[in-house]
Design a protein around this nucleic acid. Structure first.
Lengths: 144, 144
DNA sequence: CTCAGTGCAAAGGATTTGCATGCCG
DNA sequence: CGGCATGCAAATCCTTTGCACTGAG
């Protein structure tokens, strides 16, 4: 955890940015969370932080590679720690409530996937920097 | 192609909806496209269709299972034909220009993936209806 | 002192909705 | 005729931006 904050501060410094209390609070909230967080959730977790500051800080943290924006099914932006600050994982997305949970798959399958995707990327002339595997379904809370 | 229109009309009818000219134009545009289309792209392809009608028609087509909303990195909604009207595929997403292209992976790998994901879904209490594998990178046009 | 960071309020912009009209069944 | 479909314009709502102020270095 302290490690994450140290790395975050370092990356911000490289961009002449300060690791302020508000930014620290956002990172701490993401460390504590078990999946990508919406802006309103982060605002709630970071008492006293203005909405506009949150958006601006999220943009800076994303640009400096501390956090990552996650795409979802609804119109709410969600953020999580950059992959090299956590571990490679995938998302379970509930198509009803929009909730997202993290999960991982076995290393061998992950490796096969990686190989395959690399070849696909080069075939299409893409620099395949990352992939994102999402499983979309209905979570237990939303099943009626 | 005619098949797609027939199926679309049928699915709409089940929901007491009509397969009007505007809706037909949207479906035709999606058939002709080689990847998910933005609303503005569809509007351009469907001359004479009002913006609000496009949004409403897209919502109806999605609800009746004719088309599917695709998530992207930018703030633009994109749509493609429902999976059972095309074939199972994945997306190459350019993180610079937002362009999305379709691709497929070998059947054996796809099968392994499917098995793995099913078990993950049940473990987390999700009804895993579908998955979506996206490869995010920088396309050849945007590499400077 | 300087310049990044913050808060407040107003502006943006894709998407949605209210309402009157047109049109298929 | 009844109800879905359409167009136009106004409203929504997440997000961004302008501006003045505060604070760290």
């Amino acid at each position: 955890m302290a490690d994450v904050h140290a790395t975050a501060g370092e990356r911000l410094r490289l961009d002449k940015q300060r690791y302020t209390e508000g930014r620290r609070a956002i990172v701490a909230a993401l460390v504590a969370a078990d999946g990508p967080q919406r802006v309103d959730e982060l605002l709630e977790a970071c008492a006293g932080l203005a909405q506009s500051s949150a958006y601006r800080n999220l943009a800076v943290l994303e640009r400096t590679g501390v956090i990552r924006r996650v795409v979802a099914l609804d119109d709410f932006a969600r953020y999580e720690l950059a992959e090299d600050l956590t571990e490679h994982h995938h998302h379970l997305v509930c198509e009803v409530c929009g909730r997202i949970e993290d999960f991982t798959i076995p290393a061998p399958l992950e490796a096969d996937l990686e190989d395959c995707l690399d070849s696909v990327a080069s075939r299409f002339g893409f620099d395949g920097l990352s992939h994102q595997l999402d499983l979309v379904g209905v979570c237990d809370r939303c099943r009626n």
